[in-house]
């Protein structure tokens, strides 16, 4: 018998996990390797605000128990960074110099938090929220009655901001173009939404461009945000929350088309016959909007992974899920977003 096919999945988020589970259901014999930079098995990043409600043990955040992976013979490689994918030889090179051959590759690397280029130099002094570790560092550095400055305020960030508010912390939101990402409210709705946030107790600052983030002189903790107009603001932590950009750097030699994300067909295939993509990493042409959409609704991400897995196994299903993109304020001033409704 020939060697079983080796299906490699880059990324261990919803899409990757969904794909692994589906591949195993469809092929009891194949090899499945899941490569992730994370240290933990799959957990839902959108659950991370729960940490501030006392759920700090990562075991409780896991989507499935660890034994799931061994029972389903899914090789979970954590702490592995893919540095290069060679489409010609169908090989993946990892940062630790291991080379892995794949028969099929599904890229579910997702998105990395976008940081406006003007703030790049300040990145080390800001608190991300993209992983359990980052979230726990934020939890550690933000006291219970502390003050957080959030820059941007995408929908994940606003969820966090409201949680922080509910748990006794003070939040200042410095808006920018990515506020409410991935929604793109018009000016009128945006004003209503900001008003609603202000009513909930978030201090909203508009039309201010942050220039630098520093630590207060002589202090060990805390942050100072300086704006381009020369004003400053102090806080315990500064949280950038400006949406996601796809992680594709390692795909440059793969022989697939990339704009900001990986360009895929509705069947989620790339321009390489053995490479597929699902989730936030891919851009799909939307004929109605005449644009490459690269956010497809996080609830659909797992569906995409499962669909890609079936297509890898020979199906020809089309990803045609409408992204329900709606955000509104109700009579009580509460914000409702399709992004949040699980």
């Amino acid at each position: 018998m020939a060697d079983p096919l080796h299906h490699v999945i880059i990324g261990s988020g919803s899409a990757g996990f969904g794909a692994a589970a589906t591949l195993r259901e469809n092929d009891p014999d194949c090899r499945i390797s899941m490569i992730t930079m994370d240290s933990l098995p799959f957990y839902n990043r959108y659950d991370l605000p729960r940490i501030f409600r006392g759920c700090t043990d990562w075991h409780e955040l896991l989507a499935v128990p660890p034994a799931y992976y061994s029972e389903n013979r899914i090789t979970l490689r954590r702490h592995n960074k893919v540095v290069d994918v060679d489409g010609k030889t169908q090989q993946i090179r990892l940062a630790h110099q291991e080379v892995i051959h794949f028969d099929s590759l599904l890229v579910c690397a997702g998105g990395r938090a976008y940081l406006p280029e003007t703030l790049i130099d300040s990145a080390p002094l800001m608190h991300g929220f993209g992983s359990y570790e980052a979230a726990m560092r934020l939890y550690r550095d933000l006291p219970e009655n502390g003050h957080a400055v959030m820059i941007g305020g995408d929908m994940i960030g606003i969820d966090l901001a409201l949680t922080l508010l509910d748990t006794g912390r003070r939040v200042t939101l410095v808006t920018n173009a990515q506020t409410f990402w991935p929604h793109e409210p018009d000016d009128e709705l945006r004003a209503q939404l900001l008003q609603a946030l202000a009513r909930r107790g978030i201090e909203v600052v508009q039309d201010a461009r942050p220039a630098t983030v520093t630590t207060p002189e002589g202090a060990e903790r805390g942050r100072v945000v300086a704006f381009e107009d020369g004003t400053t603001m102090t806080a315990d932590v500064v949280i950038p929350s400006c949406g996601l950009v796809p992680m594709v750097e390692f795909m440059l030699n793969a022989g697939v088309d990339i704009e900001r994300g990986l360009l895929v067909t509705p069947e989620l295939g790339t321009t390489h016959p053995h490479i597929w993509a699902a989730g936030d990493v891919c851009q799909i042409w939307n004929d109605e909007e005449k644009a490459y959409k690269f956010y497809h609704g996080w609830k659909n991400v797992r569906v995409m992974g499962e669909l890609a897995a079936r297509n890898i196994k020979g199906a020809h299903e089309i990803f045609d899920v409408k992204v329900e993109d709606r955000i509104e304020v109700d009579d009580q001033g509460n914000i409702h977003s399709t992004f949040w409704t699980h």
Partner: peptide, 23 residues
């Protein structure tokens, strides 16, 4: 709007317009 097409001699890519995607 364009999609990426084949390779040009200088190692860059061709851009192919998508019909009806004008804005």
């Amino acid at each position: 709007q364009n999609r990426l097409g084949g390779w040009r001699e200088n190692g860059r890519r061709k851009a192919i317009a998508i019909n009806g995607s004008e804005f």
